[in-house]
Design a protein around this nucleic acid. Sequence first.
DNA 1: TTTATCTTTGACTAAATGGTTAAAACAAAT
DNA 2: ATTTGTTTTAACCATTTAGTCAAAGATAAA
Lengths: 219, 219
Amino acid sequence: MWLNYLVNTYSFMTEHEMNTEQKILDAAKDIFQHKGMTGARMQEIADKAGINKALLHYYYRTKEKLFEKVFELAFSLFIPKVKEMMTSDKPIFEKLEFFIENYLNLLQKHPYIPGFIINELNRNPKMLVGLIEKNIQLKEGNLLGVIESQIQHEVELGIVKPISARNLMTNVISLCIFPIVARPILQGVLFENDKKEYDLFLEQRRAFVKEYIINSIKV
Amino acid sequence: MWLNYLVNTYSFMTEHEMNTEQKILDAAKDIFQHKGMTGARMQEIADKAGINKALLHYYYRTKEKLFEKVFELAFSLFIPKVKEMMTSDKPIFEKLEFFIENYLNLLQKHPYIPGFIINELNRNPKMLVGLIEKNIQLKEGNLLGVIESQIQHEVELGIVKPISARNLMTNVISLCIFPIVARPILQGVLFENDKKEYDLFLEQRRAFVKEYIINSIKV
DNA sequence: TTTATCTTTGACTAAATGGTTAAAACAAAT
DNA sequence: ATTTGTTTTAACCATTTAGTCAAAGATAAA
């Protein structure tokens, strides 16, 4: 199909007429995110995409390159959102509520991505190097700086308790992501492995986490 | 060596006279925890243990069996501690401080284990089935029940704010483990990848987390 | 010293796996 | 219809990898 490059969405296409490149990416995403770089098999990805293994190498010459593409897509879906959501000009409480709400939505839609990112970065931390500046322009609108001075400002107004931006961000992200990433063990230990119960727990935690974070810095 | 089975510690031995089985376990632990089941190579483990690959199969017939052993050791080092530390008969505040203090120590000593456990459980959640009851006798001294009723009791005394035991445990564990598990990304985004700074951050967070958790439930 | 048992090794095998190639199928342009 | 360029496939290759085996070394007992 010589106009593949014009197609950047496929919601209106049926599975069958979806272009090959996209089918490959979808399949690769699925396999890589569940089995990791080392656990994934090119044959399995080809099968899932419904194509020949050779065709995989025709589009993405090596497993490495295909993996990098998938990783980058996952990364750019999750990491820039943090900055994007935290640098609006709402007051800090609203900002936090907005962030938690939206990040939990994102996590619900892509529950395997954070674990995938964490795991692969642990395997090969060098991948991070180019990726951060590519996805977060730290220069203008420095994330930490913005939050830091916003907190300081609202501390002076007597609205929030003092807290370092790094600790605050770490807490928020930990409380949002960890229950998803560590689902198997938490579900096992705290819920006798009852999937439904854990889903309900996560649902109820949405409001809980918001309140918990807000209360912890409300003066 | 016919008295291998008598040796269960080796702190007094030099690397050289350490028995083979232990050398294998140490090497396997290292490789598996850094590369995961699928990324690890039997040859690499053999090399690290300073033995022949065939000897690996002599002691642990398959990669699977060796992995299971390593996983079980890691699991039993981390999971039962939760119960052990939370079921003492201290008041809740002391209990939480004690837990956080000790769990952070454990994490500092074995920073790769939680990521290892989480990742492998994600790959194969079935592993959990036997492991939980083997490591935590849920029957007597039910962990959640104990905490739950302790909270309720202290709520009635007007000492703590009401909170579900599951949410409290999830918060504590998330705040302790996540900054270790997600170290590469947090260090990258929040600390411009400065390792020393991140170590310092973790060090300072020890007191911070304790205070944060306590304050969040102090009435 | 001999014998029996346990430990270790080098050499090997079968299967899996990432990657290649040459040719076929297809689509568009002339 | 022919040509030209692109997409897809079946068959193949080289390497890696878990696992085996027979024989050699070591160790304690007889």
